[in-house]
Design a binder for these strands. Structure first.
Lengths: 109, 109
DNA sequence: CTGTATCCCCCTTGATACTG
DNA sequence: CAGTATCAAGGGGGATACAG
């Protein structure tokens, strides 16, 4: 690391619901708004909309609106967004090890 | 990713000054409090103390106090904290590519 | 179904002064 | 030198109601 761009990645992931959104979209490939609401316990319409908009603005998520009644909107990880997958996997793997670390530390008390 | 532990890693890195602190400690191996203050423009004593304490609590950073007058305290990345390095490198690498992506996107406007 | 619009609260951060 | 104490500000997030 010659100069720190970690924060650039953090900007994308920072937001209470963003990791959860990405997790859902990675697993289901494409999802509608209500589907995301159902799969992410506790999120409100307001926050889901806001975070999806931010991810869309950052080219991570693709938003597709179908001109139908009732409205239908689908979300998915963009091609560019998929470049984040290795990052997420690395963080996820470390997070698992860290959970063990915490447990070991607390057991020896 | 079977279940999302990305947030566990995010908890460690979340905090306005934490990436900067880790970046400095990785480059200099061991640093005193004032040295960190000088190398991190804009940080206040309060925030530097607070974030260092959190990183210490999470076993990422080691704090060594020397019983001298005037006081001398040294900070460094702990052995366990060094397991974070690959994560930081992955994020940093992606951050660089993302910077290019942004630039290309804006140039074509 | 897929959102907006308001209002409110809390938590992080910052500014500043003080201390062993 | 390496902090702590106190107070204030700002923004992220939540609750609720409304709309195309």
């Amino acid at each position: 690391m010659s100069e720190c761009k970690v924060e650039t990645a953090l900007e994308i992931l920072t937001g209470k619901w963003k990791p959860k959104i990405l997790f859902q979209l990675l697993n289901h490939k494409t999802m509608r708004f209500n589907e995301l609401m159902r799969m992410i316990p506790g999120v409100t319409q307001r926050m889901l909309t806001q975070h999806l908009r931010e991810l869309e603005e950052q080219d991570i998520v693709t938003r597709t609106v179908y001109a139908e009644v009732p409205p239908k909107v689908e979300y998915s990880i963009s091609d560019y967004g998929s470049t984040l997958v290795p990052v997420l996997q690395t963080m996820d793997a470390w997070g698992r090890k860290h959970a063990e670390h915490i447990q070991n530390r607390d057991e020896t008390n």
